[in-house]
């Protein structure tokens, strides 16, 4: 369906993050596509950065945006997927009062039910970490609210495609061959 609005994860590989982030977000803004979440970081490949953006729109609009982004000289490759084509997670951190938290009689059970764990605990506060979908991190938030949440933060989505090989590295191998060809 051409006009069906869906959630898409746009995975962007770039040469150098600096300055590109604003160019990329401009492409979304200009087409009134909202950015629901964004995460950026280095890949295992030296010099290659990854930016993952979650947005919502028609396939056509998202494809257009992806092509405009890929057109930027320093962007290596852009992919976009519906949720069924990727494995994805978000990370959430919850800071709560240690006193109130220790007053709970089923800490272990609560954490294991949610697949969460404690990453830091001191006299004043405790930090709990959980990975999962937005609904899951939100569900834990709901349960922890009774202990008074001092701070809560959720990361942007990161995702890997269900394709066996990461297609960007195949592309980079091909380009490396082309470079060698040219220098012969």
């Amino acid at each position: 369906m051409e006009n069906e609005i869906k959630e898409y994860t746009v995975i962007i590989y770039t040469e150098n993050e600096i300055g590109l982030l604003s160019q990329i977000s401009n492409v979304f803004t200009r087409r009134s596509l909202s950015i629901w979440s964004m995460s950026a970081g280095a890949t295992a490949h030296e010099g290659v950065h990854n930016i993952t953006i979650v947005t919502e729109g028609t396939e056509r609009k998202v494809r257009e945006a992806a092509e405009q982004i890929e057109k930027r000289v320093d962007v290596i490759k852009v992919f976009f997927y519906t949720d069924d084509k990727i494995v994805y997670r978000e990370l959430a951190l919850y800071k709560i009062s240690t006193d109130r938290f220790l007053g709970c009689n089923d800490i272990e059970g609560l954490l294991s039910r949610h697949g969460a764990r404690i990453v830091e605990m001191n006299r004043k506060f405790t930090v709990i970490q959980k990975t999962g979908y937005t609904e899951e991190t939100q569900a834990l938030y709901g349960e922890l609210e009774k202990f008074e949440i001092l701070q809560f933060i959720r990361s942007g989505r990161i995702a890997v495609s269900r394709a066996v090989q990461e297609p960007v590295f195949k592309f980079l191998e091909k380009r490396e061959k082309a470079r060698k060809q040219l220098n012969k």
Binding site: T14, E15, V73, D74, V75, I76, K77, L172, R175, E176, A178, R179, L182
Partner: peptide
């Protein structure tokens, strides 16, 4: 030292 550009891998 000037060398013309002939290749950019992302382009």
């Amino acid at each position: 030292k000037y060398e013309p550009c002939r290749f950019i891998r992302s382009y």
